[in-house]
Design a protein around this nucleic acid. Structure first.
Lengths: 196, 196
DNA sequence: TTTAATTTTAAACAGTCGTTTAATTTTATC
DNA sequence: GATAAAATTAAACGACTGTTTAAAATTAAA
């Protein structure tokens, strides 16, 4: 299908160069398609971006919801959530940082708001898990749930950023080892805070 | 001075809209100056960006270096470094996130490399402090210094981001209270990890 | 096979971009 | 006050931007 070729070419180029630095002619060339077809199928370049962004955002929330429903200790659930986010963000780091970039570019407010809603629904699932842990007295009552979440996302943001991550890698450390180190570190750090 | 007016107008607009979405005519209008003067004084728009970025980057490293030279426990020094970064990033959050954005936009490699060098020199000062703490046996020998740094920068990145920070704020919490909460949380979290 | 709807094409649209030019004004040097 | 240097101006440059048009080609329906 033409529109699918356009979509995947657009996603690839947006991730590499950002929205502004990718022209519709770039996309058309990369998708082997006439320029006018982009507007024919997607009305505008902005709407193409919106389609790319919303195309993949909902699967994560379903996985989080599944974890919440498990009959396990909050420890175990937290371990699963950390692993979920680590693999999700490490596997799609270009896509993840592209989303961050476009969210930060304050223009395009219309769908920025739409995206924020989706993201917020996801973090509510995470928060639910932490609150359940408090209710069952596995986690301290006065643990800072908000900043615990900020810590996880912050570490993952730093360690998957193409530029910044170089500061945190050890000499000769391979991708896989680095990833595992991050996962263990984040989990233990969170657990230490949540359990006193 | 004309060139100073251009510089501050450019910094303001870059922070608000990003590099790509700011035109040289925007800058000229905002600085109340003829368009051609931008190229006359700064040769190119890119070079103007470079000037804006490097104009402020070195003061932080000097402050870090000063802290390192103090005759205090590593605990105290760490507290100072956390406070330094908290105030630096919270006070200049727009500027900080603008730098992050431009660093992530993979084009402009020439001076991206130059900027990374400056940033890396800064984090070396931070690392020095942590290593000194290990040598004096205040910090555990097997503490993960790299990821401890990633944690601090990650938390600050998340909590100062205009969009993301809303997830971490508590209802009705004022800027100052939020900032203090972040500072205490980050310091205690790092200390807990570094001291076992 | 004819007709209608959909998709693709090449070309042009109007607008903006960063930059350059050449003339003019301002400032500094003597 | 004359001369040289520096700063500013209005106008234009060519290149590229996202989008539209109208004709041609393809596909689907009858």
């Amino acid at each position: 299908m033409t529109s699918e070729r356009i979509l995947s070419a657009a996603q690839k180029l947006f991730e590499e160069k950002g929205f502004d630095q990718t022209s519709v002619r770039d996309i058309a060339t990369s998708a082997n398609v006439n320029v006018a077809l982009i507007n024919y199928h997607f009305q505008s370049k902005e709407n193409l971006l919106f389609t790319v962004l919303t195309n993949s955002m909902d699967t994560t929330r379903m996985k989080l919801s599944d974890i919440n429903k498990l009959e396990e200790s909050s420890d175990e659930k937290l371990k699963r959530v950390v692993a979920l986010y680590v693999s999700k963000i490490f596997d799609n780091r270009h896509y993840y940082h592209f989303v961050q970039r476009e969210l930060a570019n304050s223009g395009r407010q219309e769908f920025r708001d739409a995206l924020i809603k989706v993201i917020n629904r996801n973090s509510l699932e995470f928060r639910q898990l932490l609150e359940d842990g408090q209710k069952s007295k596995e986690f301290r009552k006065d643990a800072d749930l908000e900043l615990a979440m900020a810590t996880l996302f912050g570490i993952l943001h730093q360690t998957t950023n193409e530029v910044l991550s170089k500061r945190y890698r050890r000499a000769g450390e391979k991708d896989d080892a680095f990833r595992k180190r991050v996962e263990h570190f984040a989990y233990n750090l969170l657990l230490q805070h949540l359990k006193k």
